[in-house]
Design a binder for these strands. Structure first.
Lengths: 194, 194
DNA sequence: ACCTGAACACCGTTCAAGT
DNA sequence: ACCTGAACACCGTTCAAGT
């Protein structure tokens, strides 16, 4: 990449991070280009679609979630590991307000720039879920696809301002549906019994 | 209302019903006016906001849900009544793709044209939920606001094309979190035990 | 190679001017 | 009273013309 192109690329990415944080994943791309002091077509060549831009923003987050999952697999009970990872995934997804609908669509569209990231998240979740299944801590009739969809629904709930005060509670409700207390013997349950 | 105004009003409403069914609650209002053969400003005077238009479309549905709830209160066990009503509410909300975010916002904005409808749905749900609470069939730490938010999340899930095949399953998962089988003695449980 | 401005076809919202 | 077209300030996307 030529030096000036590189500079534009980096500038676009850093401006996009701010704009998306403020206006969500459906922020105006024109606005991003304008604030980056760059022609609109320049943004389009670096990031041919909105998904491509979001993907570039999300890449480091997905890597982090992957690393966390690896840690959790060795440091926690299967049930706790899954819940902790879900909480982190929902939190990060929520930072990109409105991105969950893009995610769920991308999972079925290998052409999407978000496809790889979505598959990665889907697979990590499935792996943690299967561990919980093996330990008899997760509801048996839920698979990785269900889990991915529930993460989307939870992130969507966090995205709604009026839900925010009860969002953590709803996280507990939904995650306890995936991991019923009756099947669990981990820290969360210990706390409830204490 | 003058005869020509009445005619325009009715025509706008019927066209809006089709357009919203096809493109969702964020359909182009310009498109509605165009297809109704009416000036754009005419639409705006009859329906000063998008919420006002959606509210007009939704009014009969809300009335129907209210009637159903009244029936269910006399014809079913509290747990069954709540689940059946939830299913119907999610189904109808889903017909207006994308309306759930408007709903959750309207519940906190008395100025919104959707406010009355949202409060009505919220209150009906709370009433059915409290019956289930009294019968010991519903999870105690869930209130009407939680229920309203969960209905929104479920309708959002039904709105995502990639989730559709598993949406009914996720409905069961989430509704069983609200009404755990351990607390229920109704038809759904009987079926599962059979 | 890379960038830009303008063009095109859309929005939502408002308002002066018509009947 | 009611309606309309045009105006304004926005989009996303594409492309010919510049350096």
């Amino acid at each position: 990449m030529r030096a000036d192109a590189r500079k534009n690329y980096d500038r676009l990415l850093s401006v996009a991070r701010e704009v998306v944080a403020e206006y969500g994943a459906d922020a105006s791309l024109r606005d991003v280009a304008r604030k980056a002091g760059v022609g609109l077509a320049t943004l389009y060549r670096h990031f041919p679609t909105r998904e491509a831009l979001i993907e570039a923003l999300l890449r480091s987050d997905v890597d982090e979630l992957r690393a966390r999952a690896a840690d959790l697999e060795t440091s926690s009970t299967p049930g706790d590991a899954l819940v902790t990872w879900l909480r982190g995934t929902v939190a990060i997804t929520h930072e990109y307000r409105g991105v969950t609908a893009l995610f769920l669509a991308a999972l079925e569209d290998p052409e999407s720039a978000l496809y790889e990231s979505c598959v990665a998240l889907h697979d990590i979740g499935t792996r943690l879920l299967d561990r919980a299944h093996a330990a008899g801590q997760a509801r048996a009739d839920i698979d990785g696809g269900d889990l991915f969809a529930l993460v989307g629904a939870l992130a969507w709930l966090y995205d709604q301002p009026s839900v925010k005060p009860r969002a953590d509670h709803l996280f507990d409700v939904i995650s306890s549906a995936v991991l019923p207390d009756g099947l669990r013997t981990d820290a969360q349950l210990q706390r409830r019994l204490a």
